[in-house]
């Protein structure tokens, strides 16, 4: 399945073959599934690979009717001109992306966006990753290691099947702690437990915590008690990723900041995680409606059956909005 919906286009197609735009498509060079929901893709994007640094993100579009999806860069290869992303399939767009593999193309791949991590030699650094947070923390851990820091990584997941990149992370860390909620691998505990123990023992100069909002919130709370500076990487909803829409705004130290321009990394002790998490839930209803439509379509309906007219779409949009 390439495109699950093809519509009559109102506009002349800008990206038509033959007008030189085709070369601007971004090819997926490889894809690996890590679990039912989590997958990795390597995408050819030389301009982004040439410029990107640890801590930055990209925005991709699968097709022209698609969303702009922000994703943190998991790895990059400047020589090969590739960017690696690790994605958890949650909604329509990420589910759709999951169906794409080697040889498929994306219409847009924009980046690098956001500020790079400030990598310095500070001493001992903990990199705590929750769930797919392992992916964005990997290039940061590697850069910290290369800068001469002692790097302790903690990777946490709900269960063993959701763990990935353990070997990769082990390569760039002096010490690696694995935790799962159910104890199926490593310690049976939450990420905050080893984090707390390490802070308690002292000698920690810096903490990076990347994962779901609630995980970062509690990591920041844990380290705050010990006064250890903690960076978190925020994943708010955004459209353009260049500062234009302001949808990604978060409250940091009482000030409104834009994740795409000022972040994505912020001082975890200053971030209002409740606002962040609340804003992340902004489109739950629409996301569900969209996913239901996508899944029912993907389960084998005739493509033409869902060819809603613009009017229908607007009506549906209204219905969704009314229920919000």
């Amino acid at each position: 399945m390439k495109k699950w919906h093809r519509r009559a286009r109102l506009e002349p197609k800008w990206f038509d073959e033959g007008n030189g735009k085709k070369e601007d498509m971004y090819q997926i060079l490889s894809k690996v599934d890590y679990s039912d929901d989590v997958f990795m893709q390597v995408i050819e994007a030389p301009a982004v690979a040439a410029a990107c640094q640890a801590g930055q993100f990209i925005i991709l579009m699968i097709h022209e009717e698609g969303e702009r999806i922000p994703l943190t860069i998991a790895d990059f290869d400047r020589e090969a001109g590739t960017i690696t992303i690790v994605v958890q399939a949650v909604g329509t767009s990420t589910r759709h992306l999951q169906t794409l593999g080697k040889g498929d193309s994306l219409t847009s791949f924009i980046g690098p966006l956001g500020q790079p991590s400030e990598i310095e030699k500070v001493g001992t650094v903990i990199c705590a990753a929750g769930g797919v947070g392992v992916a964005p923390i990997y290039p940061i851990a590697r850069a910290l290691k290369e800068a001469g820091n002692k790097v302790i990584c903690i990777m946490a997941a709900r269960n063993e099947s959701l763990l990935f990149w353990e070997d990769k992370l082990r390569e760039v860390s002096d010490e690696l702690i694995v935790t799962t909620d159910d104890g199926s691998r490593g310690r049976k505990c939450l990420v905050t437990e080893p984090l707390k123990e390490l802070c308690e023992a002292g000698g920690i100069d810096l903490v990076y915590a990347i994962g779901p909002g609630v995980m970062m919130k509690f990591c920041a709370k844990t380290t705050e008690a010990y006064g250890v500076k903690t960076f978190v990487s925020l994943n708010s909803i955004m459209v353009d990723g260049t500062g234009m829409c302001g949808g990604c705004r978060v409250s940091v130290g009482g000030e409104t900041k834009f994740v795409c321009v000022d972040g994505p990394e912020f001082d975890g002790h200053q971030v209002d995680f409740d606002v962040l998490m609340s804003r992340q839930r902004q489109y739950l209803k629409q996301e569900k409606a969209s996913l239901d439509a996508y899944l029912s379509h993907a389960s084998g309906q005739d493509e033409s059956a869902t060819d809603a007219t613009a009017t229908d779409a607007t009506a549906c949009n209204r219905a969704v909005a009314a229920s919000v």
Partner: peptide, 23 residues
């Protein structure tokens, strides 16, 4: 943001287009 969602991303034609908008 409101206009970008609606105009550039065509959220006014959601769910045909994938970008949502709170109406």
């Amino acid at each position: 943001e409101f206009l970008t969602r609606s105009n550039l991303m065509k959220a006014y034609r959601f769910p045909e287009y994938d970008t949502p908008i709170a109406v």
